[in-house]
């Protein structure tokens, strides 16, 4: 008995950070319900879930990368390109076109991620610079394929995302839950996952221990790009069309969600559950701004303030708030 108690205590101690993070999420939800009666409605919860889906995948992908001390600034362009491909290649939505388009989208994502990973791992280039550059290239390709927002994402495909289960949970959200569960399991229980943490914790030591760090990095960037393409598909099906610039805001928003969740740039710390909380916190606050009828102009300003406050809070609550950039 005592042993089990101790173990439970251990679990609590080791996860105190996550638990307190979810208390914050809960507090925000409760406050929202108190102050915004509209938020209590079923439709608003569905809206919340729908809103979380596109940012969700890409932020999860970004988590993998940031855990290895990297960053991927090309995700927004990958999302844009995905919406463009989805809006131009699916024709009327016949089964064959949809499958081919999906394969094309995933192939593109893997190529981008693989290129990022190889440049960063093999040539030891700065991730920020490399992904900024590939983002620029991919964004250019998206603009080339579809210079202005348009195209058409066929109905059967959008159904795959927006249809609700039990008349409540959108399919897209279910996919997201599956990916969350998979990612959580992958990072915690598999060799690949632990190697991600080892690489981020101390790359040189990981190399010395004989881990295939380069391979881990390539895989991580491919994962991130792939997840970004999921986000792109979600976005395309929500817009029913393609937009060569639609992904851009998601790049830094995904980074913000990861950091708000408490995963840091110093690597090896944090994880999927952190990011999920980060996504919820940022999305909830945005929804409240919407419900409260704040002008979109003002929302821009508030989003900035919220990100600063949230990142400061998350580093403060970990006690790592101290002077200096590293």
């Amino acid at each position: 008995m005592e042993h089990i108690n101790r173990k439970a205590l251990d679990v609590f101690r080791q996860n105190r950070e996550i638990i307190s993070l979810y208390f914050v999420v809960l507090a925000i939800v409760i406050l929202g319900m108190v102050f915004f009666p509209a938020f209590r409605g079923r439709q608003n919860l569905i809206n919340l879930m729908n809103q979380i889906v596109p940012i969700g995948f890409v932020a999860l992908g970004q988590t993998y990368v940031i855990l290895t001390t990297g960053i991927d600034l090309s995700v927004g362009s990958v999302m844009s390109l995905t919406t463009v491909l989805a809006a131009t290649r699916m024709n009327g939505g016949d089964f064959q076109s949809v499958i081919i388009t999906l394969l094309l989208v995933f192939a593109a994502a893997i190529v981008v991620g693989g290129f990022n990973g190889l440049m960063i791992a093999r040539l030891r280039l700065e991730p920020l610079i490399v992904t900024l550059a590939t983002g620029s290239i991919v964004g250019g390709i998206a603009l080339f394929l579809l210079p202005h927002p348009g195209g058409y994402v066929p109905y059967p495909f959008t159904q795959l995302w927006s249809q609700t289960v039990f008349n409540f949970v959108p399919m897209g959200f279910l996919y997201l839950l599956i990916i969350i569960a998979l990612s959580y399991f992958l990072l915690r229980n598999t060799r690949f996952g632990r190697w991600v943490y080892a690489t981020g914790g101390n790359e040189r030591k990981a190399r010395n221990t004989g881990l295939k760090v380069d391979l881990v990095k390539v895989k991580v960037y491919i994962t991130c790009s792939l997840f970004a393409s999921f986000s792109g598909l979600a976005l395309a099906s929500r817009m029913h069309s393609g937009d060569p610039l639609s992904g851009n805001p998601f790049t830094l928003f995904s980074v913000a969600a990861v950091l708000v969740g408490g995963t840091t740039f110093s690597g090896g710390r944090g994880g999927i559950l952190n990011t999920v909380a980060g996504i919820f916190i940022l999305s909830l606050l945005r929804i409240f701004l919407n419900i409260a009828g704040v002008s979109p102009y003002f929302q821009n300003l508030l989003t900035g303030l919220i990100i600063i406050a949230a990142v400061l809070y998350s580093s403060y609550s970990k006690g790592s708030l101290k002077g200096g950039v590293s």
Binding site: R194, Y197, A198, G200, G201, N202, K205, A206, N208, T209, G267, G268, R269
Partner: peptide, 11 residues
């Protein structure tokens, strides 16, 4: 030392 601070002793 070649230990990674973020991982547990067993890992």
């Amino acid at each position: 030392l070649n230990l990674i601070d973020e991982l547990s002793v067993q890992e």
